[in-house]
Amino acid sequence: MSPAPNWLKPVPGGLWCEPGGFFVDPTRAVDRAVITHGHADHARAGHGHVLATAQTLAIMEDRYGERAGDNRQAARYGEAVRIGDVTVTLRPAGHVLGSAQAVLEHKGERIVVSGDYKRRRDPTCPAFEPVNCDLFITEATFALPVFRHPDDREEIARLLHTRTVFPERALLVGAYTLGKAQRILCLLREAGYDRPIYTHGSLDAINATYRRFGIDFGDLRPVLETDKADMAGEIVIAPPSTLADRWSRRLPDPVPCFASGWMRVRARARQRAVEVPLVISDHADWDELNRTLDDVGAPHVWVTHGAEEALIHAAMQRGFDARALRLQGYEDDAE
């Protein structure tokens, strides 16, 4: 086995690429950054120069305004961009709108920083493209064999069945504001649900960005303008924090639902007093993580944020040189 490429290093602040003079998803403001996707722990404010997809830049501009980066450079998926001595290409990661893997090439070696990714179909973004490489840096959010996400259509069917059980209650679906919420909206429409869907105000800006990039959600309405009694039987999409918040009191006896990969484990759902746990995740599950290692064929694998131990154990058994990459500043838990 050839030694692992030595020109990308974990340092305080993130992954530092010396010959390119840039960081990937730095956790503090830096001079030059390549950003894989728009979630706040990967896309931070205040960088000098930012390279990302147009969608990710738009999400950062929504959130940070002027502080989204002094010099923002959009790259199309597959477009090669030279930074210093390194060629950077963004490839779809299938995680959320605009999410990308950063493919870095230098002196005939190739490193792929996957960012967060999944292998399932997602109506809001193109599918993950495996890229052959020498070193693959993978996430491990759901890297235990108990995490096998079910078919998302079955989960949506269960949500819709709940409407028939509790016609007099509103269904309050907690979903992360960027990505999960929009995916649920699209899945509901694909399942033939054509009633208006009610949304929390904190989704408005991101929904507008998704629309600008051609994602259609049908008839969405703000909760605020509707009478409590008229909300019986309606579906409301809101940030997870609203499930146990006073905000939910404006809904008629809401059924707390939560869309997250963590809902696979009953204790997690019970902890949050969720009545309808929906196992819908934007991260790769155990089988997807392992299949991806095979697909990219990298002899060296670095595992970051999540259950590293189990994935490293499984990868080593299959002959990969796998090790944990302990990076600070990423949320293992947020989904």
Partner: peptide, 16 residues
Amino acid sequence: RVDETLFALSYEYVGD
């Protein structure tokens, strides 16, 4: 059917 280490890690996490 399942690797012993992976089962142990999983059981520890799930608890039931």
